[in-house]
Design a binder for these strands. Sequence first.
RNA 1: GCGGUCGUGGCGAAGUGGUUAACGCACCGGAUUGUGGUUCCGGCAUACGUGGGUUCGAUCCCCACCGGUCGCCCCA
Length: 436
Amino acid sequence: MNKGVILVDVKAPRGTQDILPSESEKWQYVEKVLTNLCRTFNYKEIRTPIFEHTELFQRGVGDTTDIVQKEMYTFKDKGDRSITLRPEGTASVVRAYVQNKLYGLPTQPSKLFYFGPMFRYERPQQGRMRQFVQFGVEALGSADPAIDAEVMALAMNSYQQLGLQSLKLVINSLGDDASREAHRNALMEHFEPYRTALCNDCQIRLNQNPLRVLDCKDDRNHPAMKNAPSILDYLNDYSSTYFEEVKGYLDQMGIPYVIDKNLVRGLDYYNHTAFEIMSDAEGFGAITTLSGGGRYNGLVADLGGPETPGIGFALSVERLLMALEAEGITLPIDQKLDCYLVALGEEAQKEAVRLTYQLRKAGIQVDKDYMDRKFKAQFKAADRLHAKYVIVLGEEELQDKIVNVKHMKSGIQKEVPVNQLVDYLNKELQGGNEHD
RNA sequence: GCGGUCGUGGCGAAGUGGUUAACGCACCGGAUUGUGGUUCCGGCAUACGUGGGUUCGAUCCCCACCGGUCGCCCCA
């Protein structure tokens, strides 16, 4: 029949994945925990488009960044507009903040969170997908160092709430514009004599963004690295006081951290506070950064809004789940089914359809056989679905207008009149949950 | 984007330049006309990533591509 049909081998595009039911429950659980965490920190959800004008990311993320230069999914739509699938969330959130004039609301700072897929064209690896899901928060409108600490606390708790232990909060300050400029000049001066000894990439970085030379892996052991000027020595009074206060607030909350003066972030918009959360757990390979964030005091103005400070962070849900796996943490996901209806005989099958629907309308979770299985096999199916109760409906029950309800764990079975079944199950399911 | 490595039924995993490609798990049925387990017996399955090439003949050898994975770049 299908001889003439050409079967094309259609697969999900490279770097994307299907999240099947066994996994999606974990995703839902994580999303629930994180959403609830945001509630306690009083962050509200914002949902922005999955694609934006390309220009937003060029201006927001920065033209010289790798993300913009080589990792964006950019295409022309039918109206000849250049569109890009969002590679990160901050630019969109800030754009929405400006466009909708959220800065005019009386509730400042604006504390927002988001959850959704991001897209970057990279060579895939475990923990590095072309489509991946980020959870992130942004706090806009406050330059209080306490809110930097708050965002880091939320970031750490995102993992701790789920039971992760092997975490390391790494922080640094990138300073304000004046501090950065001074540091930049010092770096160029410092490395210039060694220019030819550095790797090719670093020779280019030296001109474009000398900060990035600091975290080069090739040149890590070059003697010039050891005594390279640290940004921390070039912070002006405001920047350095700010950093001290951020650390102070972290101490207040009892959140441990380490300072890495070479921590540099790959997006242009950061200044002052920069941080990453790493996992110490085994089995991560090259992927150790679970999440990252920082302050971006110039971004709102860059995108056409009023001069407004901001700070945020984002984590990858894929990496979060990997970290849980690596630490052997299983999420408390309820895989049980309340009821499974086993029916035997033609007439009973008809009644089973009616009864199943009736129970469902009463809010009871119930399923039945659709594979024409034998009686015994239906029981096995109920077992595989981890059914708490099995409702047996055969010819005899049908005649007597009853069903047999079996509690699977104890094996105890009771006859229940059909017209009392909803009440009976509701009572059983409420009371019975404790010892399940 | 660069380099390494891998690709056999739903999953795991043998194997060979040559008639029907092992096995295990899972699944279905029977032994056990209406009660989950075990055991035994039987059965099911679009399986050698795709496309070329070498060859009388390729799942096996060669090339390209696709995909996974590891490292690099970079990042979440």
